[in-house]
Nucleic acid binder design. Structure first.
Lengths: 200, 200, 200, 200
DNA sequence: CATGAATGAGATTTCATTCAT
DNA sequence: GATGAATGAAATCTCATTCAT
């Protein structure tokens, strides 16, 4: 039954299964047996591919942050004008928040471990640092091209990313409380009016 | 050793200890033994005051949300003008995020359980619903008094609360990444300029 | 609130409560807290009246066996002829088995402890020894008066008491399996025909 | 140390150990640690083979009722004439009651749980229902062949099974109180004389 | 590569018992 | 007499990890 070179496939299988388990049971509440069952593999094999549960978790987080990075970057790169790219940031983020894949939930689970686990803190903090940097770049670009007014790019990018996180967060806690698309539109309006304000 | 009438004190002791444990170890990673040790009480007594770990946790969350409600409400009530009260929202929230008491961290831990535990979901969703409602009231008040322009109060309050959450969140992940007061100022500017825009 | 001389009342209260607890939860599965709650007294008081759980249980058993002794003896004494008294034995026993008070169930719970607890063994064995002795007396009386044939009174009394126990037992396990009165009649017929058989 | 394919052996080992523990300590008073020790296995392995203590207990009861079914059925099948088969019923049952294996004691422990546990009630009630049915079949057979008189087969089988249970029960409580073989002979006489009585 | 088996540490929970008041 | 409080032992159960095969 065992084929040669199945290692990458098995790793994938296990990481997917682990992701699903975290989504269903929570970061601190799933067992390796459940992962194995979900991957239709034996429990023992997990320790062949991963040193221990912690390493498996880190790998899951790595894949997750990569996915999110790609998702937002792609969206932002497709847009051409600075305002369009700001809109793309909201677009991509809220897509991840509303999608069937519980990306945001699982990411949140990891983030809540950040204060207790240096490795997780570094990875999650890095994700949002890149997020801010991307936004910052767009802002700087817009300013340079005269589309946006002069402003504190660092502060504003933090605010923009904050909006994205905080709204996804509220949406996760109660999907019925508000309409995500409507709020997205308001965010775009709010931010773009501020950016373009010929401040005077 | 047992004294009569110490029940409320003990409850308090245990809830404080549990809060500290969650802050240090995380929601899913602290043991009742640790709580007992921190409270310098015996393990058994926890189940004398609380039916089980779950009930203890809910009580901790209850106290936490009450504290946060009070904190923000007080700040908001002290301010007199609508713009001042909006600023107070940011003020109170970021105070909670930056304080020595890891309010935000622990709250986040609970929120990450929301998708797995109905009771927690209801309580945390309720907290943020009240948060939005407070903001909404301030907006409506400002509009009525002609200080703010007409706008979608629900959407804007969601955006404001989102900012607060998302910035606290980023701050928790990396305190060095930005200056909280500076970002706060930008948020206030961003929001207030939008609100007061004599769009007309 | 505490009155003088309430001791007997309290004892009674606790023994009744304990009996009910055993009936509901089983011999090995009820807690003293439950007894205290059912008696609407505090947990601590139990150890004022009884040395420990074991002693409480023995007292419950004592009351139970006394009740059963009385029940059967009274019935048997009311009857006048030997056949009538044999019938009375069945009557009283099956009454105890079918009554709302779960006498038999609780007694069985104690009996199942007999092989592990000398004191319980002695008390329960004593109950059935008296039962057999009563039956034996009736048989001897009947023989002496020429109503019954000569027979092994010890063996037959054991068989009669056995019937009573075994039928109550089956009835407890499944009340729908047979009609207790009908079976009682057959038992009486079976036994009395054997006893009176002018075997020649 | 772990070998492949030892599962059935381990299951057996654990069930035997559990049976012994119940026999020694009682249904509600033995711990899984004791079972593990008796089986010279680790505590954890019990939960590898059985979901929980309850499931282990049910499996023990299953094996026990199967053993008893077989014991009595074999005896009854070996005999050829209806009276012989009735005698076989007594024979097999009292053998189980007097044997070194504490079959009856353990069964009684389970039966005393019947009123508190539906699954146990069903299994134990089922055992005695089969017991009665077997006896009934023998009676019907005897009647058909003219060896036994016409009678209420349901009631009489209940009485016979009752005798068997009740005498085993008394014997368990006090082995010295009477001679089991002697009582057995009387039972056979009592029953067979009733059955064959050419009452007409 | 992969599995089934096994372990043992540790977590939650229950509870009889004790004791100050 | 009576209570509320407290303890600590023990029980059940979960689980990451290890290892022979």
């Amino acid at each position: 039954m065992p084929k040669r070179g199945v290692a990458p496939k098995r790793r994938h299988q296990l990481l997917e299964a682990a992701f699903d388990c975290i989504a269903q049971k929570g970061y601190g509440n799933f067992s390796l047996k459940e992962v194995a069952d979900k991957a239709t593999l034996s429990k023992g094999i997990i320790h062949y591919y991963f040193k221990n549960k912690g390493e498996l978790l880190i790998m899951v987080l790595d894949r997750l942050t990569n996915s999110l990075d790609n998702l937002v970057n792609e969206k932002a790169n497709q847009a051409r004008t600075p305002p369009g790219r700001i809109r793309a940031i909201f677009d991509g983020s809220f897509e991840a928040a509303s999608e069937r894949e519980p990306f945001f939930q699982v990411l949140l689970d990891f983030c809540s471990q950040a204060t207790k686990n240096k490795e997780i803190k570094d990875i999650t903090a890095g994700l949002y640092a890149r997020y801010r940097r991307l936004t910052q770049k767009i802002l700087e670009d817009g300013i340079q091209h005269g589309v946006f007014k002069e402003l504190d790019v660092q502060g504003v990018s933090t605010a923009i990313v904050g909006m994205v996180i905080g709204i996804s967060f509220q949406y996760m806690l109660d999907e019925e409380a508000f309409s995500l698309p409507k709020v997205q539109k308001i965010c775009e309006e709010l931010i773009l009016s501020y950016l373009s304000a010929d401040s005077a």
